[in-house]
Computed example of a mutant assay.
Amino acid sequence: MTESSTRIALVTGASRGLGRSAALKLAEKGVDLILTYKDNEAKAQEVLEQIGKLGRRAVALRLDMADSKGFEAFAQRVESALSETWRRDRFDYLVNNAGAGVQASFAETTEDQFDLLVDIHLKGTFFLTQKLLPLIEDGGRIVNTSSGLARFTFPGYAAYAAMKGGVEVLTRYMAKELGPRGIAVNTIAPGAIETDFGGGVVRDNAQVNAQIASVTTLGRVGLPDDVGGAVAALLSDGNSWVTGQRIEVSGGMML
């Protein structure tokens, strides 16, 4: 495969959890990666090593999704990485995955908690994508990350779910406005997954895990590779005609 024909994906928050799984699943399909991490560079390096073992090239760049003022400088680092590693000036796929959770009742959610979620999930997705637009290939793809919680409700996630609802609306607008460039934009909405999200409660609390499994049509809690595999499939050639869609990956949770 030549430099120009190699597909390159930028996956935010790829040092762990769903982002890590998506990056590795994409590498398995022959895609090269630009990964972002916030604090844990060592974990990001581990993912780079795994991608290398799959025969793909990857670089890791630090990014704080809550700091939109740093996005322009980040875009410049992406541009440099593309030039130095691939001798290209654009990449093909953007996966807006990085996020953070806050569990607090509606009555007890603070403004600081709310603002952090806005900055990371809604403002971050909006303005990071905006800054990266000149670096995305015409005919490329964008996958934003929502949550099953934008469809069903669990107490304690009002603010988080509201941000994800905003991401779903934003996705449709992005799909409409980027359509003339042939860029498809969709949303992946995971259900409850066994990761360290929210302190790892779904993974580590047997009672919570069993309760979620009991309301999931396929009878278990999701795993990171369930979502990572779906992201990679959505970015495959066979899905190039899908845009503006919300695709829930929850095993039929709360149907």
Rank of each mutant, 00 (worst) to 15 (best):
S4F: 04
S5H: 02
T12K: 00
G13M: 12
A14N: 06
S15N: 15
V31N: 06
D32E: 09
D32L: 09
I34L: 14
N40M: 06
K43P: 08
Q45V: 03
Q45H: 08
E46M: 05
I51S: 09
G52N: 07
G52Q: 05
K53G: 10
A58C: 09
A60I: 08
R62W: 07
K69Y: 06
F71S: 02
F74M: 13
A75S: 12
Q76E: 15
Q76W: 10
E79C: 14
A81V: 10
D92M: 02
A98R: 02
A98Q: 05
V102S: 02
F114V: 03
L116I: 11
H121L: 12
T125R: 02
T129R: 01
T129G: 07
G139P: 14
L149S: 04
Y157L: 07
A162E: 05
A162H: 04
M163G: 02
G166Q: 02
V167W: 00
Y173C: 13
M174A: 15
A175E: 03
K176W: 12
V185K: 06
P190I: 13
R203K: 15
Q207V: 13
Q211N: 06
G222H: 03
D226A: 08
G228W: 01
L234N: 05
S236A: 07
S236F: 01
S240L: 14
V242D: 08
V242T: 14
T243A: 12
S250K: 06
